[in-house]
Design a binder for these strands. Structure first.
Lengths: 230, 230
DNA sequence: TGTCAATGACTTGCATACCAGAAAATAAAA
DNA sequence: TTTTATTTTCTGGTATGCAAGTCATTGACA
């Protein structure tokens, strides 16, 4: 992993992944190797490499001799990622709370400030949502980093493609959800700096699951995007 | 993932992975596509697929136009996996402890019994070690399953190739370590059935880290197998 | 009209040839 | 002898053709 791959294969991988996560390539849609190759004016080989990689991340479903399809959003996988995040995040942030010193405060506050400014801006909701999700990831990464657990969140991010896609799906809903996220961030940071572990636990729980539970009506708008529930 | 791939690519992947995890292909060794292809009497294409997959799991390092090498054992990655396992396992087993009912007891005790019999047998240490590690994984899988969190441990297993390899490395050491693992298993199960959460926490901690801390002298026997420590 | 087999148009998996980059070996020059 | 070009020979990356599997259409036959 320390050494670069060729840009061709990596390029189509990155572009396809972004399109899938942003639902521009909708769940269930067919996508063929040769078609993609022609679109990018390259051969099938690097496309195949990218496809295989995306399949392992659960974003594509390759059915040999039949076709390749954008995978449906697997709510079970999303639920699993949420559980893992909840547990790991509480553990790491508890550690951080115990070792917290004021020198870390500025960096976090800057991120929070940026999020507030995003919410006050008048971007179109799609653009705002993307920008805010990026900032959200930045916030959580900064927290893990402050706790000396940078690698742990890298691990999480490699596995949460399904969750990212789900989040994109429900966040197009409106600005209110994003505002709630921001407020939760502020509260989480307050709990950490005041070493309120019980409050922290409750916060993380809410923060992660909130959008999830209030989303069943959103899901029903596009049921064909999702796998059947367990 | 629900659909099979072709057997050719999957086959070499599985075989190579086993050889790497069992250290038959030692860390740092070179391994070439064409050589491997000839060995299995297939073309480079399925070999390349397998290589790419192993690279993403951190078991190979592909350096374009230079060569492909069995990756060194990354103790940082091992340490991260241990942390994640500790946190997740304590959380899941705490849940299990709260919801424990006696119908689950038999299955676990059978696994423990099998482990005891393994230890009492007179297998050669290498074979014993492999068999015990398999049984160890079975034990932990059964626990997660009993807690209704089967997917969570699948998640873990996909990420712990580095850890598995490390374990193979230190367990060739002798029977004592395996005996300790067995005793820890018994104690963990006792803690769960008696709902002793504090004891459980301590157990898991010991269980995971024990072999790790006592292994620095073992590591020094083959320093060329490991990456530099953080 | 209804049934079933043949056919053709797709798909991805695999084999092979060629390309580009890197390193080592060789040859030429100081 | 030492140093510097140059060439040779590795490597993996890419392009492409063929093989094999799947499905929908079609046409023959009952």
């Amino acid at each position: 992993m320390a050494y670069k791959h060729t840009a061709t294969s990596d390029g189509v991988y990155a572009q396809l992944k972004e399109q899938i996560l942003h639902l521009e390539l909708p769940p269930g849609a067919a996508i063929s190797e040769i078609e993609t190759a022609e679109k990018y004016s390259i051969s099938r080989t690097p496309v195949r490499d990218a496809f295989k990689r995306l399949e392992r991340e659960g974003l594509l479903e390759i059915r040999p001799h039949i076709g390749t399809f954008i995978s449906l959003i697997d709510l079970n996988a999303v639920s699993d990622v949420l559980y893992i995040r909840e547990v790991l995040e509480f553990s790491v942030l508890s550690d951080l709370s115990r070792m917290y010193d004021k020198s870390q405060d500025l960096r976090i506050r800057l991120i929070l400030q940026a999020q507030k400014e995003l919410l006050d801006s008048d971007m179109p909701i799609e653009e705002l949502s993307r920008a805010f999700i990026n900032s959200d990831n930045e916030f959580h990464t900064a927290l893990f980093d402050a706790a000396g657990k940078k690698n742990i969140i890298k691990f999480l991010y490699e596995y949460n493609s399904q969750y990212e896609r789900f989040r994109t799906f429900i966040n197009f809903n409106g600005k209110d959800d994003l505002t709630k996220l921001y407020e939760a961030h502020v509260e989480i940071w307050n709990c950490i700096t005041t070493q309120d572990l019980d409050g922290l636990n409750a916060c993380i729980n809410h923060h992660l699951y909130d959008g999830f539970s209030s989303s069943s009506d959103v899901i029903s708008k596009c049921p064909e995007y999702f796998t059947k529930i367990r």
